[in-house]
Structures are given as C-alpha cells and as structure tokens.
Design a protein around this nucleic acid. Structure first.
Lengths: 240, 240
DNA sequence: ATTGACAGGTGTACATCGTACACCTAGATT
DNA sequence: AATCTAGGTGTACGATGTACACCTGTCAAT
C-alpha cells in the first residue's frame, strides 16, 4: 500500500532544531506564511512573495502544500492550534467563557485570520479539536446534549441574517488522507460525535433521516439574544 | 468642478422601460451579475463571463462599474436592497425578529452573498439603511440607546471568537462621491448617528475621545448568550 | 564502493484574470 | 453642419496560480 504514510499533519516532525535554517517543511512554510501575512497583509501573500521570503523558487512550495488553498487552510490550522488549552473548573459557564475568549485572542493576534477562516469554512483537525473541546466543556458541566448542540449553533451564527452558521460542519476537502482517517473521527472528537448522533432525527413528514434544521437553530439563537436583551431592559429600567 | 454629478447610486435612473433590452446601465450590469452568480456560482463570475452574458465586450463593463470590487459591492447592495420593509408594531422584539428574519431570507436566496458580504465589510448605503432601520425598531420600541448599541454589536458578532463584529462600521471606500455625501449621513441615517454619538466617550485614563470597546462588546454578547443558556437549562432541568 | 530510488529544489511556460489605453461611433447640443 | 460626449470595442500587459520536465543530494541496498 503506497503513500499511506504521507502525513498532512500540522506538526509532523520537527527536524528543525538540528538543521538550523536549511530545508523547507510544511510547518516552516506555514509559519513563514503566517509571519508574512502578519507583517504585510494577507492580500500581498502570493506564492511568489512567500517563496522569495523563504529564499526559494515558487514551485518549491508545492512540495509541501498542495496549492494555495491548502496553504491558507494550513495557516488557519496554525492559528487555531495557537489557542492552546485553558483551565477547566467543571462549571461550563466560566470554562466556556475562558475558552472562547482565548480563541478570540488568538485570532486577534493575526488580523487577517478571521477573513481567511470565514472564506473557507473548512473543518480542519485543529478546528474540530477546538469545537470538540468546547462541546466537552458544556456537557461535562452538565448541560444536556441537545441544548449544547443549539448553543454551538448560536455561538457560530451571525444573528442578523448575514453569514451562515460556522458550525454547519463543512467537511474538510475530501482528500484521500482525510478519507483514511474518517473512521477515526468519532474517537478523536467524541463530543462532536455525540452531538451529531443527537442531532440526527426522523422527519415526521417524509419519514426520512434528516440533520439539524438551520432555520430553527438560527431562530433559537436570535431569540436567545432578544430574550436576554429584554431581561436586561426590564431589570435596568424597572429596578428589579 | 467637473464630474461631481457622476452618480454611484444604486438605482440612478431607470431608462429601461423605454429602451427594452438595449444599452447597459449600472443596474442592468449588477442585476445580470447577481443572476449569473445565482446560476453559476460566484467563483465563475469574471468580468469576461459577465460581459459575455450581456453580449458585450469585457471592457464595456468598466463604463458602469469602477472595477470588480465595485461590482461585488454593487451586488451586495442589490441584495440588501431586496430586504424590503417589514411591518412594525412598535414592540421592538417582534419587530426586530421579523426584520432580521427577512434579512436572512433575502441573503439565503443568493447562497454566495454571505461570503461576498463578509469578504468586504463595506458599509454601502443600503447596508447603512438596513442597520439604521434595525436601530430604529429598537429605540422606537423604547430600548435605551446604549443598550441598543450593545445589542447591535451582539447581533453582528460571531460569538466564539471568530470573525470580528460586522457592526464595526468599515466606512465605504473613500470615493469622492462618498465624501460628497458624508455630511448628509446623519440626516439619512439618524438612528445610526444617535448610536455613534452615544458611543463616543472620554477614556478615563488618557482623557482622549474614544469609540466603543470591541472587547467589551464581544464579552457582552458572549455573556448574553451564556446567561440565556443558563436560564434555559435551569428552567428545563428543574421545572421552573 | 556502486547504484538507484526518491525527496525536494529549479526553470520554463502557460492559462486566467483584472484592467490600462487608445480608438471608434451614434446621438445630443450648439 | 460642427462638435461634444457617453458608451461600446480591440488590443495588450502584468500579476498570479500552477503543470511539467528536470536536476541533485542523500541514503539504503547491493
């Protein structure tokens, strides 16, 4: 069986400490791309400029990234990977708060990242890992799985109708290497798997299996916010 | 002097009823672009394909749109313009709900539109008009202006740290035609003007004038959702 | 040591895209 | 009739992603 070892991992193996600055690697390319985008803006990041930055000919990059889209995906992977763990107390509310704020901080460190992330809602492994960790905080804090599911949608939605839910899991590009790991996904992201299992239900009309209703999830999120605002208004205005 | 009358309006003047299908116009170009994107996907919309669709040579388009960015901006304008008015009862909650849902429906009619809209957070006139109408619903429903301000941020944020607030008003590209109208903005969008006025405050530390604190707004939105979830959880779990 | 396979860097070349620029043309204005 | 001008045309160029053939140094197997 050939080529099964062709890792597309984010951090495959660091042979960088021994060889100081010689030889590219996927990680080195990605890191250089992130740095370059930080310094010069994402719009001026081209395969040529990046190659020049690395002192290499443009086509050399293609030995480490499949194409520019793959490069961009890799860049978000790097940043999402920077989020890092946050301490958990077992109370979902402060735990989730901390974690989300940490994510925001990581994204803010690279101004271009949100635009790139939104332009390609590719669910890469670190992304799934982050989502899984969030879900884990909710459920291990005692929140029911259905509610957790809806909350994840609420957090991923923009609530004035613009921008579809980021939690609408766009699977990563259907590469062979991904398909190879597909079966292992539930094991790697057990919390997401639990949500997916809970979300699948039978449509009473057609009798067919169906996923979640994005319109319903949107309205849930919207009402959550509006109800919250109403409470704030009543409390502040009428002195409890 | 010279060229001040070069209108970049969305619907400049409809000389289309008399001349059936002859001659381009900004509106005709934009509408064709929207239709083409609907049918073939935004990624295959190029100046050349669009020109071909209109039976015209590519460069002809540039007599009606400044460049491709302007074209895309115009396309969003068209769609935001499609949102249309919604009936208002004077109660902000159902009114806002209706309006937001209408916006979502308009955007969903054109799958590509959210991506385009988010890729260029340009605050075009129809966009400002929509926001202004939303704010108007809140305040005429009796919600205090400060709270309205925060809610607008909450609605525009993605709440897991990804994606900065759409309500962080990126001004439209600084064209001459825009600057000409700049002074008229408060009159055209009075509700937005009120929010802007309320948001400006003096920073206690430096003593300088400052806009709104995006971090604070983000945390407000996040807590709004988390508090709401907590209430739902308590109520459902413990039977009120 | 010889070989040969292969990971990884090179060079050339091309298709696609946005768009600058000069030109043309028909209808309106004087 | 002369002229202006809005608007469509044709050509051409630079930037960009990337296919493809090639070269080279390293290391394993002979």
């Amino acid at each position: 069986m050939g080529g099964a070892t062709k890792g597309r991992d984010v951090v495959p193996d660091a042979t960088e400490s021994s060889a100081p600055r010689e030889g590219l690697s996927r990680t080195r390319v990605l890191r250089a791309a992130v740095d370059y985008a930080d310094a010069n803006g994402i719009e001026s990041l081209t395969m040529r400029t990046l190659a020049a930055e690395l002192g290499v000919v443009p086509m050399a990059l293609y030995k480490h990234v499949a194409n520019k889209d793959d490069l961009l995906d890799g860049m978000v992977e790097v940043i999402v990977g920077e989020i890092g763990p946050t301490p958990a107390s077992g109370h979902w509310k402060p735990d989730v708060r901390r974690r989300v704020l940490a994510a925001r901080a990581a994204l803010l460190r690279h101004r271009w990242s949100q635009a790139v992330l939104e332009s390609r809602a590719a669910m890469t492994a670190p992304m799934l890992g982050y989502l899984d960790s969030l879900v884990g905080l909710f459920v291990s804090g005692g929140l029911p799985i259905d509610l957790t599911h809806s909350v994840m949608h609420a957090l991923g939605n923009r609530m004035w109708g613009f921008g579809e839910d980021l939690f609408a899991a766009t699977p990563p590009s259907e590469t062979e290497s991904f398909n190879a790991q597909k079966d292992a996904l539930p094991a790697r992201f057990p919390n997401l798997a639990a949500i997916a299992a809970a979300a699948i239900h039978v449509d009473p009309e057609s009798g067919r299996l169906t996923g979640c209703d994005s319109q319903a999830e949107f309205e849930f999120a919207l009402d959550l916010v509006l109800d919250g605002v109403e409470r704030l208004d009543v409390r502040d205005g009428k002195e409890d």
